[in-house]
Design a protein around this nucleic acid. Structure first.
Length: 454
RNA sequence: GGCGCCAUCGUCUAUCGGUUAGGACUCAUGAUUUUCAAUCAUGCAAGGAGGGUUCGACUCCCUCUGGCGCUGCCA
């Protein structure tokens, strides 16, 4: 059977970094197996879902280059499907209406907690379903539709997770869980199953936090009389405190990474975080080649920004010059580009190289080299100026500076004041390389300005 | 509280019973007889505990411990 997978983000927020990893693994699995990868927007929560979030999610996926197949599916357009399925279940006696109030349910749960019993609602309304006021699609008070779960038979709900192996749940622990607030308001677990059936999803690859939803969903598949797909539960992405990465930990929205990171770097990082490939750095195509669902790790991985930065720096170095300028939003001579990309971790750090496009500003004290005086820096700059004025090629300038270093008795004294005069910073690429990028005129201008300030 | 998942350096991980437990990031040191953020080299650093099984266990089994997740009329 042809592989068909999906990711199903809900538009109640931006695309989460964890959803992005899940998208990547689904995508890799589909591409590797000649299947298709689909995008379904889970907007059944009408109160919290917005169109803006939906657009942002699509945009983030496009930025990452995780192209989906076919049309975007929206749960909000599937009302009729859920309703039909719900009606069928009611007719067949597999689902029933319950109108226990929230308060009743709450105190029941509390009591169960005290008695150390599993929290579940075994509903006494199961057999008086006819008391439901009408088959109106609108919601009526506290009425909620529940799945009639067989709790008499001792049975285990078992599934073989592709990543984790066999997982079992005791069916009696579930209770008659809710599946819809009304015929027109299907709840998550129900909507997911109906959609996955409708779309013909063969493999459900999602976060570990859905493991406990799986037995409920299996029961729904069974009630609907449909084939159960294969499941694979991915490990969670963790914050440094090892809890599930969430908003309170900072940037979790993929779009937040756009200003500093290359999509290839983020993808490589996310991919390598929970799956071991043969090498550290690889393209999407290479990842497809090597990807095995069964090789995905089981335990959660801490999101390590430093490592992401390293991946990013590796990809920045490899960027085409024109592409780099476009992404960084700057305009510098081509010769300057390797000088910058060589030591850049994040795109927005190009601001540290602003001396390539504007006059440096600095405190003249910075011109001072270690224990030497400003007067000595001035002398050094005057000599530098002479060298730069009459020497044309890079090698010659270099040896002239080496000589100057010997003459002054300290190489740093020759190089440091020049660095500061040209860049205004204490960290920069080699000052002579910078001088050649700036050109003779601008270089001399900056050196002279430094001399005048002393 | 109930149920489930997980468990090797600080972090990401390799090891399919026998290894000086390897690599990457970070960090430290050195080199580049100029800065460092680049580059190269070197170094620091790990199998939660207790029982088994076995000639031999990080690896298999059990118990405990710990972490995390779920426990909604959210998704």
């Amino acid at each position: 059977m042809k592989v068909k997978v999906r990711i199903a983000p809900s538009p109640t927020g931006f695309l989460h970094i964890g959803t992005a990893q899940s998208a990547l693994y689904n995508w890799l699995f589909a591409r590797k197996n000649g299947g298709t990868f689909h995008l379904r927007i889970e907007d059944t929560d009408r109160e919290r879902s917005t169109k803006e979030y939906e657009h942002s999610i699509l945009y983030a996926l496009e930025w990452l280059g995780l192209n989906w197949d076919g049309e975007v599916v929206r749960q909000s357009q599937h009302g009729i499907k859920y309703r039909k399925a719900l009606e069928r279940l009611i007719t067949e006696g597999k689902a029933f209406w319950c109108n226990h109030t929230k308060e009743e349910l709450e105190s029941e749960r509390k009591e169960q907690g005290e008695k150390k019993e599993p929290p579940r609602h075994i509903c006494s309304h199961r057999n008086n379903a006819m008391h439901y006021p009408a088959s109106s699609p609108q919601r009526i008070n506290d009425w909620v539709l529940r799945l009639a779960v067989d709790r008499d038979v001792q049975r285990k709900i078992i599934f073989d997770d592709i990543i984790r192996g066999r997982i079992e749940f005791d069916a009696s622990l579930l209770g008659d869980f809710s599946i819809a607030k009304s015929l027109d308001d299907a709840l998550y677990n129900f909507a997911v199953v109906v959609d996955d059936i409708d779309m013909g999803i063969t493999h459900v690859i999602r976060g570990e936090d859905h493991i406990s939803n799986t037995p409920k969903q299996i029961l729904i598949y069974e009630a609907l009389g449909k084939e159960i797909p294969k499941f694979a539960h991915l490990p969670l992405i963790l914050a440094p405190d090892r809890s599930k990465l969430s908003k309170r930990h900072g940037a979790v929205a993929v779009v937040d990474y756009k200003r500093d990171y290359l999509p290839e770097a983020l993808l490589n990082f996310l991919g390598a975080m929970s799956h071991t490939f043969s090498k550290e750095l690889l393209t999407k195509e290479e990842m497809i080649e090597e990807f095995e669902l069964s090789k995905v790790h089981k335990s959660g991985a801490v999101f390590n920004t430093e490592k992401l930065n390293w991946f990013n720096s590796q990809y920045i170095k490899k960027l085409e010059p024109s592409k780099f300028l476009e992404l960084a939003g700057i305009d510098v001579p081509e010769k300057a580009i390797p000088l910058i990309t060589e030591r850049l971790e994040k795109l927005s750090d190009v601001q540290n190289f602003d001396y390539f496009w504007k006059e440096p500003e600095y405190d003249k004290e910075l011109l001072k080299w270690k224990e030497f005086s400003l007067e000595e820096s001035k002398k050094s700059l005057e000599e530098s100026s002479k060298i730069l004025e009459k020497t044309e090629n890079n090698e010659a300038v270099r040896s002239a500076f080496d000589e100057l270093g010997q003459k002054l008795g300290n190489r740093g004294l020759a190089y440091w004041p020049l660095r500061v005069a040209l860049t205004g910073k204490e960290k920069s690429p080699d000052p002579i390389d910078i001088a050649f990028v700036l050109g003779k005129e601008k270089t001399l201008e900056r050196v002279k300005k430094a001399i005048r300030s002393l």
